[in-house]
Simulated assay, not measured.
Amino acid sequence: MSYKSILVIIVSLLFVVSCKQNNSYKKINEVNSQQVSVEKSSVKKFVVNEFLDAGGYTYLKVTEGIEEYWMAIPPTKVEIGKTYYYSGGMFMENFESKTLKKTFDKIKFVERISESNSGVVAKSSAKAHQNSGKSDLTVAGSKIEKASGELKLSDIFKNKNSFANTNVEIKGIVVKVNKKILDRNWIHIVDGTKLGDKSSLTITSEEMAEVGDTLVFKGKIVLDKDFGYNYVYDILLEDGKILK
């Protein structure tokens, strides 16, 4: 084989690898049911090696397979040496716990754990059924009544560059809530308007809302918010405050 042929093969292989790396980058769609989850929802198990309760979390040092890492979950009673199960989860790098005065090089945030495989499946199925029912009803149903000139989600989607880094007030129906991930709640709202297939807005907030609530939020619109691991929100309302 000639030197020229070998060079062509090497360049072709580099191109293929580059394409695979570029395809790994993903923007999060607002209607995605796993918006803050990097991993798929298959059930996994781990053993607790150490735990700390602080700042609204239980921090676990766990072994999963051959890997040892830190995990953060809502306050939960656990036992060292015991096996637990979970699904989903999101890894974050260089996460700082101000309460512990510790920075974790890598930590996984998980919504819940269970002492049994079936316990994780049952809870996940019940939650999915509850959320999907209310979400489908809201998206397919009538629009929220708004006063003349009152901001709509479609206005924000159409003119997102104009709204970037500005504070807005927006009224919507809560269709999904992810609690206490990265020290905040992730609230998804709709108001019956949309742009293309985008119909919901994600809000991060220290306040809590329930699926089905109709609320007004005030916060800052940010674009292309990167949470690491190639997951980016193209539009997000940060530090949302509930007005009414």
Results as ranks from 00 to 15, higher is better:
Tyr231Ser: 10
Thr83Phe: 04
Ile221Met: 02
Gly212Arg: 04
Asn22Glu: 13
Lys160Phe: 11
Met1His: 10
Gly119Gln: 00
Ile181Asp: 00
Ser37Thr: 07
Asn94Gln: 14
Leu137Pro: 09
Tyr69Gln: 09
Lys26Val: 12
Ser18Gly: 15
Asp224His: 04
Ile9Lys: 08
Ser135His: 03
Val216Gly: 07
Val36Glu: 05
Thr99Gly: 07
Glu50Phe: 13
Ile28Ser: 00
Tyr84Val: 01
Phe46His: 11
Gly149Asp: 00
Thr83Asn: 12
Asp197Ala: 08
Ser2Trp: 05
Tyr231Trp: 10
Val62Cys: 07
Glu30Arg: 06
Leu13Glu: 09
Asn167His: 09
Glu50Asp: 14
Glu169Ser: 15
Lys45Asp: 14
Thr76Ala: 07
Gly56Asn: 05
Val216Ser: 07
Glu150Tyr: 05
Asn117Gln: 11
Ser97Gly: 04
Ser42Glu: 15
Glu169Ile: 15
His129Asp: 15
Asp183Thr: 08
Thr63Cys: 04
Glu207Leu: 11
Ile73Gln: 02
Leu215Asn: 03
Lys244Arg: 13
Leu7Ala: 14
Gly172Leu: 02
Ala122Phe: 14
Tyr86Ala: 01
Ile10Met: 11
Asn230Val: 06
Glu169Asp: 13
Thr166Ile: 03
Glu68Val: 14
Leu52Val: 15
Val11Gly: 11
Leu215Trp: 01
Leu100His: 06
Tyr85Glu: 02
Ser132Leu: 08
Lys108Ala: 10
Ser142Val: 14
Ser125Val: 15
Phe227Gly: 00
